[in-house]
């Protein structure tokens, strides 16, 4: 009970600290903007630890963060193998193939107004569908190894990127296109120098949505059959044997991988679309 009360006190102290930082001159600086969420995150972790220990929550319901950290540290070998199988082989290869394919198709249909009017609404609709459901079919077609996971990822990332790219390519103003025409620029020159750069903010919007979808696809596909490694495989088997610390370690890996992947795409975005108002 004392630990539980300590958690409450800690919560209020952390919130008070954050309010102080948010109200001070630090709030607009980089330090302040990083410190506040970090303090918040750490206090949540500490409260989790205190509550689990204070209320004697059984390990099969919620392991304490320190227990998870121990498992994480002792199982790094397994976690790395799973990460390589799911994230590097399945998700990344599928992401690259899916993005390139969607991009190529977008460029192709962009040349025809008819196709654009036909495909855009359908693509938008398909992008909202539960495409993860195709995972068992694709696992059946491409076998248990990472190829089938990559295939699921391709299908999942294809439509968001297609729709965003087509929209982006249509984003130039008539004035700008006319200007290119007065320069007597060819189709490819207009594409490379005007329309593709103008489309990049949209493309990156799609690429960022797709990072999360890629990991989801690769993990779900493993629930339908995989070699004896991979994050989805480990999660489903560990849940079965109630080794929740292992499950949480895999979740931590998935969270880290997802955040890093998203962060990497955001960095590239900042570098490519430095001119866009949202980046300045």
């Amino acid at each position: 009970m004392t630990l539980f009360l300590a958690a409450l006190v800690l919560w209020m102290a952390a919130w008070w600290l954050n309010t102080r930082i948010a109200g001070s001159s630090l709030a607009s600086s980089y330090v302040g903007r990083t410190a506040v969420p970090v303090v918040f995150g750490l206090s949540v972790l500490a409260i989790w630890e205190l509550v689990v220990r204070g209320l004697d929550v059984p390990q099969v319901i919620l392991p304490a963060p320190t227990v998870i950290a121990e498992t994480f540290a002792s199982e790094t070998g397994t976690l790395w193998i799973d990460f390589r199988q799911t994230a590097l082989k399945g998700a990344i290869s599928g992401y690259v193939i899916g993005c390139l394919a969607a991009f190529a198709v977008a460029l192709a249909i962009d040349r025809s107004t008819f196709l654009r009017h036909g495909l855009l609404p359908i693509g938008g609709f398909v992008a909202a569908l539960p495409i993860v459901g195709t995972a068992p079919i694709l696992v059946n077609w491409f076998g248990f190894d990472w190829q089938s996971k990559a295939a699921v990822v391709v299908v999942m990332v294809f439509f968001p990127i297609l729709v965003n790219t087509v929209q982006g390519l249509a984003d130039t103003a008539a004035m700008q296109r006319d200007l290119m025409r007065t320069y007597s620029a060819s189709y490819w020159q207009t594409l490379l120098k005007l329309r593709l750069p103008a489309a990049m903010p949209f493309v990156f919007n799609g690429l960022k949505i797709a990072t999360t979808l890629a990991l989801i696809g690769a993990i779900v596909a493993e629930y339908f059959g995989s070699p004896t490694r991979g994050m989805g495989f480990r999660i489903s088997t560990s849940v079965g044997t109630l080794e929740l610390a292992m499950v949480w370690s895999e979740i931590a890996v998935a969270a880290l991988a997802g955040t890093l992947f998203y962060g990497a795409v955001t960095l590239v975005e900042r570098w490519v679309t430095f001119w866009h108002p949202s980046q300045r």
């Binding site: 954050n18 948010a22 999360t212 993990i219 994050m231 989805g232 999660i235 979740i251 997802g258």
Partner: peptide, 21 residues
């Protein structure tokens, strides 16, 4: 300042990892 960054991070976590648990 506290919640917004974590809300964004929460969406980069593949939910399927948490679903069975």
């Amino acid at each position: 300042m506290s919640l917004m960054p974590w809300a964004i991070i929460s969406q980069t976590i593949p939910i399927v990892a948490i679903a069975p648990m």
